[in-house]
Simulated scan of single mutants.
Amino acid sequence: MSEIRTKVQFVDIDEDMAGQRIDNFLRNQLKNLPKSMVYRIVRKGEVRVNKKRIKAEYKLQAGDIVRIPPVTLEEKDDEPVISTKLNKVASLESNIIFEDDHVLILNKPSGLAVHGGSGLKFGAIEALRALRPTARFLELVHRIDRDTSGILLVAKKRSALRHLQAQFREKTVKKFYFALVMGQWKATCKAINAPLLKNEVNSIVRVNPKGKASETRFKIIEKFDDATLIQASPITGRTHQIRVHTQYAGHPIAWDDRYGDRRFDAYTGKCGLDRLFLHAANIKFVHPSTEKVVDISAPLEAKLERALKALRKSS
């Protein structure tokens, strides 16, 4: 691991960069600089905005000129470079189902984490950055579980990220998932309101009165002998929400390694299924630039379609 000394930089803040705190801006600009050092150079007045000292919570405005002082960064010689020639990375190009100057939507494959870390060299966002090397900005708007497939929303501008995340906070984004669950789902079960509490040690989520308010709405799509294909729409966005709510209702999702039932896995395994049958199938949101409603659907992967076909045949 070697060190490099940067030169003083002057950055003009445009509309797209405005609104973020100066500490977050610096951490993005100086990626290998320790967080403590970022706050130190701000506190010592080495960072200037319009030639004036500022505090770490200062929010940048369009037209500001930020002076970033020279700093010493650690250059990680062994940091892996994600190659677009890797099959897993290259194949993602065909999984991009919508893209313009503001938004990119990926039909994420099951088994691919949304970002690297915890022993993973890369996730969906790192792979997309490798596929779009000239993109100045690519950030996740939200997350879905590693084993869940389907729609993943990515912002290509900071202003788009703020706009879309505000919609998620205000719960105006409509998301619809397909899930194959055990047994016969009752038509009368159209919603589950059950608070969820996450165990911070093992990340297992349970229904618990001390948890956070959580609501999921359900609709039956198709019934089979011993399974039901349902549509699930999470109103809140808790960790593992759909998976836990279906389990709580007595109908766990097929091939759920945390909340599932092995008997159901054996039953669906005869249909060729070997992955979590939870798919983010549709999303509706207001486009951050045009202000028009965007309605995007992501098709099921072939393995899920084949499993449904086999279930229809056996039923």
Rank of each mutant, 00 (worst) to 15 (best):
F277E: 01
F264W: 02
D256S: 13
E291G: 04
V244D: 03
D265I: 03
V294I: 14
H245M: 11
A281P: 00
A298D: 04
F285V: 01
N282W: 02
F264G: 01
K270A: 15
K284E: 15
H245P: 07
Y248L: 05
R263H: 11
T268W: 05
H245Q: 10
T246I: 13
D261Q: 09
K292H: 13
L278N: 06
S289I: 05
A254P: 10
H251S: 15
C271M: 15
I283E: 03
T246E: 11
A254K: 06
R263P: 01
A280R: 00
R258N: 12
A281V: 00
D261A: 14
W255S: 08
G237Q: 04
K292C: 07
P252N: 13
L276N: 05
Y248D: 09
G250M: 14
R263G: 15
L278Q: 02
F285H: 02
I242A: 04
R258M: 14
H279Y: 00
L276M: 05
F285I: 05
Y259A: 12
D274G: 10
A298T: 09
G260Q: 11
D261M: 06
V293Q: 14
R243H: 11
R243S: 10
Y267G: 02
H279V: 01
R258S: 13
Q247L: 14
Y248T: 09
A249G: 08
R243K: 14
V293D: 12
R275G: 06
R263A: 10
Y259K: 09
F285T: 02
D295T: 07
K270G: 04
D265C: 06
Q247T: 13
A280K: 03
K270D: 10
K292T: 10
Y248A: 14
L273Q: 03
Y259T: 06
N282Y: 10
K284V: 11
S297P: 02
P288C: 03
Y259C: 09
K284L: 12
A280L: 00
Y259D: 05
L273E: 04
I253Y: 07
A280Y: 01
R238P: 08
N282R: 15
H251Y: 14
R258E: 11
T246V: 13
H240V: 12
S289N: 10
A249Q: 14
H251M: 11
N282S: 12
C271D: 06
D261K: 08
I296H: 04
C271P: 03
L273T: 05
C271H: 04
H287P: 06
T239F: 07
V294F: 11
I253G: 07
Q247S: 15
P288G: 02
T290W: 05
V293S: 10
R275D: 08
E291M: 11
I253M: 12
D256N: 13
L276K: 00
A298H: 07
G269K: 03
T246D: 10
L278H: 03
A266M: 09
A266H: 14
A280I: 00
H279T: 02
T246W: 08
D265G: 09
S289G: 01
V286R: 13
R238N: 05
H279P: 02
F277P: 01
I296P: 01
R258I: 09
Y248G: 08
V293I: 15
T239H: 13
G272I: 06
Y267N: 07
H287V: 01
S289F: 12
L276F: 04
D261N: 15
